[in-house]
Design a protein around this nucleic acid. Structure first.
Lengths: 168, 168
DNA sequence: CATATGGCTTTCTTTACGCAAGCGAAATAT
DNA sequence: ATATTTCGCTTGCGTAAAGAAAGCCATATG
């Protein structure tokens, strides 16, 4: 019995979760954003077993989130870097840091702070905006099938409708 | 040997990952955002085993992401709803949906689309902004210890410094 | 030539996932 | 009033993945 895969679900969240919804994966990506590139550095800093690390790095490369390149300066070494797809995860890491510190950190004292190098400017809390620039909350929002349709969303809405019919 | 915990790492990302860095957890939260509240509905829609679901829901309630309430209309039923901490995950789910569709979906055809109920307006791609409102990329950004300091960040930077010293 | 280093792979044990079945309390049907 | 469903779990058991430790091989360094 294989472990369940969400890759075939027609929902962006499910597909994203399938690719990065794993503790080690996200921490490795965080470390790459911190500037880390080398196998042993990940292993030492994260305290991850080397077999697990090797598997995760392979996975990240296969999925196009990291790129692996041999070093010119040392024939043994490899450098792991973010691909465009990986760099595109930047808002995710910013968000996780903000959410983690807001709800789990010591109140009022940030642990890790991101700022703009050139200006020293801090970052705003991440916010969902509509196309017209107005802020959006979960309560304002409605989920609909896009151009391609979504089986996952349709069945979810069927289940909700049935549930509402049962309890008037 | 117990499974590794990141709860004691002084980094928001690690703490967030510890609480929601799990496939089922994120999909359950997604479904709550879709309006789902009931045990059997999660089970049916996600195809998750009931023991696993029960464990995840307990965890989400213990961590204050979901709230569990007995139904008045049916003494057997429970309703799971998002707490403020859970509602605060809204940008995360929006991001995961956007990233998943951008990089894994069929190009040009959204599967699940979020829009503003009142205006029908679509949502902007999530963006990291500095306090002064300018967009920020990973290349512009520097990670520093906040007021509370961060052991995790410090040792990461030590490792990076050592690595740079070794390869000039 | 000998030793060390980087990046894994292999082996083995422990933990968590996944299925199926069952269970108790509350609701519904007979 | 009794029997049957429904809801939200729990238990037991088999498999898959995580974790620790050791080993391996190509390249580098002394």
């Amino acid at each position: 019995m294989t472990r369940q895969s969400f890759a075939d679900m027609d929902c962006g969240v499910a597909q994203a979760v399938e690719q990065i919804g794993d503790k080690w994966t996200l921490l490795i990506v965080r470390n790459v954003f911190l500037g880390m590139t080398r196998f042993d550095d990940f292993a030492e800093h994260l305290g991850i077993a080397s077999n697990i690390l090797a598997g995760r790095l392979d996975m990240l490369v296969r999925r196009g989130i990291l790129q692996r390149r041999k070093l010119e300066t040392d024939g043994r070494g490899q450098a792991y870097k973010l691909s465009p797809k990986g760099l595109d995860l930047f808002p995710l890491l910013v968000f996780l840091n903000q959410w983690g510190e807001k709800w789990m950190g010591e109140p009022g004292t940030a642990q890790v702070e991101l700022s703009v190098r050139a200006t020293g400017c801090a970052l705003r809390p991440l916010e969902v905006l509509a196309d017209d620039g107005t802020p959006v909350t979960p309560f304002d929002t409605v989920f609909g099938p896009g151009a391609a349709g979504s089986q996952v969303l349709e069945t979810a809405q069927e289940i909700l409708a049935r549930r509402q019919a049962a309890s008037p």
